[in-house]
Simulated scan of single mutants.
Amino acid sequence: MAAVFDKPSVRQRLTPMLQGFDGPLAFAVFLLACAGLLTMYSSGYDHGVRFYDHARNMVLAGSIMFVVAQVPPQRLMSFAVPLYVVGVGLLIAVALFGITKKGARRWINLGVVIQPSEILKIAMPLMLAWWFQKREGQLRPLDYLVAGALLAVPVGLIVKQPDLGTAVLVLTAGMAVIFFAGLSWKLIIPPVVLGIVAVVLVVSFEPMLCADGYRWPVLHDYQQQRICTLLDPTKDPLGKGFHIIQGMIAIGSGGLFGKGFMQGTQTHLEFIPERTTDFIFAAYSEEFGLLGNLFLIASFLFLVLRGLAIAIEAPTLFARLLAGAITMIFFTYAFVNMGMVSGILPVVGVPLPFISYGGTAMVTLGLGLGILMSISKSKRLVQS
């Protein structure tokens, strides 16, 4: 009889799971989730069940976050090598006999069609954080070269598909780990300077480089067209420049306060292409204006700063590197999406976190948030 009365209640069983959850990080995610649901209802209400699917994806991401948050960072480290090997193996399989859609070979059928490059968004920082953790206190230049090779293999395979957006995200995550591991500024500054010089030269010689019939080495034709369209979208306003022009019109027409919820003319008259996915920021800007944009940017900055704070306070090198890299993924998602919709970056397939529709991206976000929660939780347990 006593055993029955001593049985812990549901609340008592759940309390240890909820303890240590990072409140500020959860609050930032809550703000962004609310903005996402509001925007999706307006821009996607005539897309059948898109709003309900978006809400379902958010619930799925939240569930994944909750489960992953229960896994300690030491346990996460044991998944690094297997996940990386499986991810690279699947990328090679895609290159050999993957499914091609719209000129891109990015998917593979394993009973269910999957996009293996998504795995590397998490597997890449996990692998590099594991690599540097194993060499803590005895890092040599060769270790950074090996890390660069580990990063170059999946990035090269993803670029070949081609999928420039995912390649940028994987590259950012990997470079963040290498940078936070202590890469010397002497090795960072030269590539940055070369990049700035290259941008200046491309802008300066744009009339010649983007002339009809001129072909750039290395880049695919569609990549060259995206850069030329970015430099001057008015050359083909009803074709390749349509996305950028309509996005900028929608953002500008929102003014200071926006046109109001569900009142966006560019959005609802279907001038904005992909208004529930890659270009949803334009739909949001039209209806909520500059003040709404400032709120959204502030929410993303709050999330990024909180993620960096978790990284700084993490108890191990592996946890610090992993938290920093995951945080930079969130920053890159937001920066690249807002930049391409605003016409300051080429158009690539990068969604806006928590705002854009997409199940695979939402799962990746849930995994990333769960890892950050796990690292924050481990820090609190160590302090207690």
Rank of each mutant, 00 (worst) to 15 (best):
A309S: 07
R320Q: 08
P273S: 13
L303S: 09
A314D: 13
G307N: 02
T316N: 13
T276M: 13
T316D: 14
G292K: 11
G264M: 11
A298W: 09
F318W: 05
A319E: 08
F281Q: 14
M262S: 08
I310R: 12
L238F: 09
I227R: 01
V304A: 15
K240F: 01
E286F: 02
M328P: 01
D236Y: 03
I280P: 08
D278Y: 05
L290M: 15
P237R: 03
L291T: 15
C228P: 06
C228D: 03
M262I: 00
F302K: 10
G258E: 12
D236L: 06
M262F: 00
F330D: 02
R275H: 13
K240S: 15
L269R: 15
L291V: 14
G239N: 02
A250L: 07
G254C: 06
I329R: 10
I329K: 03
L296D: 14
F330W: 10
G264D: 11
F279Y: 14
L291C: 13
F279H: 11
C228S: 07
Y284K: 00
L290Q: 10
A314V: 09
L303M: 13
D232T: 01
F300Q: 08
T327G: 10
F300M: 15
A323S: 10
Y284N: 00
L230M: 02
L290H: 08
T276G: 14
Y284A: 01
G260L: 06
S253Y: 02
G324M: 04
H268W: 00
Y284D: 01
F261E: 02
P315K: 11
I272V: 14
R306G: 04
R306T: 09
I297R: 03
